[in-house]
Simulated scan of single mutants.
Amino acid sequence: MSVINGKIKGIQYEIVLADNLEHIDIENFNINKVPSCCLLKDGQYSFAISKWVSPKRTRSYPFERVYNTLNTSKKITVIPIVKDEGIAGDRDFIQWDTISLMSLLDVFVILGYYYIADIKGKKITNQQFNNEYIISQIKKIEKYHSSALHWNLNELKNNLHNVTNKAQESYCKIEKQTGIALHSIKGLDDFKHRISKDISEFMKFSRDKAQQAQIREAQTLQPKESLSTLSKAQITISNYLGGQYFLTVDEILINKNTLFLIESKHSINTQLPSKGDIKDGLLKMILYNNLSDVEIDGKKINIKPVLKLTSTLLKGSILSSDNRKRIQAYCMENKLSKRNMEIIEKLFTEAHLNNFIVKIEHSV
């Protein structure tokens, strides 16, 4: 399997496909009840806020939510530091590389914790953030005049241990209140011990987990991928913050001295993958589009990002580089809905503005 390395020195990208965000006043704000991303107004202050339902980035399209806020000058995302569903379910911890990626995108991270939950079978569900704490952090960001990078690093250095303690206390209460057995408290103690030393320990802890996940993903074909080849590759992206992102490229193609990094999204029941899937792919395009000093298996190479959308319900294929007449003919041949044609038009515009390729085609 090929190994790709690259660097990101900064982000330049124009967003087109983002949703219009609902406006919420701070007096009516409850992080547990507002949409997954919205615009928050507090007097003279205005933010775009997104929230994660798990610290794990592969669950519930958190990248779509963040993507929808990237057009706003000041962006906040709320991420639970840990989510424990009970012994019968998963327990996920926040990773350094998630925070590093948010810093790279100039997004302020609020490290949240769950403090109440409902029972569902042998698990807990409907976990809710402590809203008062989230609002208190928003108020601090209002008065914070440095960058998201500085805020995020400061939170890791000075507040991560505190939030972990709050999460630990809350899960002990939830376990008593619900009677649902949660994962051993030792796991949280180990996490707290690792991060209490210094940020480098937290980075190592996170990267070990991320690398393990990268290897697993590289060996697996996901249901939402339909590849013309199984040429997956591991890619490690480094940035000036010391962050490293261990990702898996769905498909690669080398033509002369150009490496095509292909992110694939597939649909069986609809003509296009969901907007959540597409925006998840677009966040990868943001990363790939800003890569420099790229090497594959130790050799320098030029790159071209590609977002490939496939469906069993389509006929033929089109590229974002095709002329308007060809694109219109394709839409008519496949009897695409007005909504899907609007998505394609915006998506192709975003591809043109940011110099990547979108390919839409039939696949089984």
Rank of each mutant, 00 (worst) to 15 (best):
residue 264 S to K: 05
residue 12 Q to E: 12
residue 124 I to T: 00
residue 40 L to V: 00
residue 285 M to L: 14
residue 72 T to P: 00
residue 10 G to D: 14
residue 201 E to G: 04
residue 157 K to Y: 08
residue 280 D to R: 05
residue 310 T to A: 15
residue 264 S to I: 07
residue 185 I to Y: 07
residue 48 A to V: 00
residue 47 F to A: 00
residue 109 V to W: 08
residue 333 E to M: 11
residue 156 L to S: 03
residue 172 C to S: 13
residue 149 L to G: 04
residue 66 V to Y: 01
residue 37 C to G: 04
residue 349 T to V: 04
residue 218 A to Y: 07
residue 76 I to Q: 04
residue 201 E to R: 11
residue 17 L to H: 02
residue 111 L to W: 08
residue 196 S to P: 03
residue 67 Y to E: 04
residue 89 G to E: 02
residue 280 D to E: 10
residue 220 T to N: 02
residue 191 F to T: 01
residue 149 L to V: 08
residue 272 L to H: 08
residue 362 H to M: 13
residue 241 L to W: 11
residue 342 E to M: 12
residue 361 E to L: 10
residue 344 I to T: 03
residue 53 V to T: 13
residue 276 G to K: 14
residue 317 S to L: 06
residue 247 L to R: 12
residue 4 I to E: 07
residue 352 H to C: 04
residue 144 Y to A: 00
residue 243 G to P: 12
residue 283 L to F: 12
residue 318 I to G: 07
residue 180 I to F: 05
residue 284 K to P: 03
residue 270 T to D: 15
residue 240 Y to P: 07
residue 220 T to Y: 02
residue 104 L to A: 02
residue 54 S to M: 14
residue 304 K to I: 09
residue 139 K to N: 11
residue 1 M to E: 14
residue 34 V to T: 09
residue 214 Q to E: 07
residue 200 S to P: 07
residue 33 K to R: 13
residue 316 G to N: 01
residue 301 I to F: 09
residue 26 I to H: 08
residue 303 I to P: 13
residue 20 N to G: 05
residue 238 S to G: 02
residue 120 K to Q: 11
residue 283 L to W: 07
residue 225 E to G: 07
residue 292 S to V: 08
residue 109 V to T: 06
residue 300 K to P: 11
residue 250 D to N: 05
residue 157 K to T: 10
residue 190 D to R: 09
residue 7 K to E: 15
residue 141 I to C: 11
residue 319 L to Y: 03
residue 337 S to R: 13
residue 345 E to A: 04
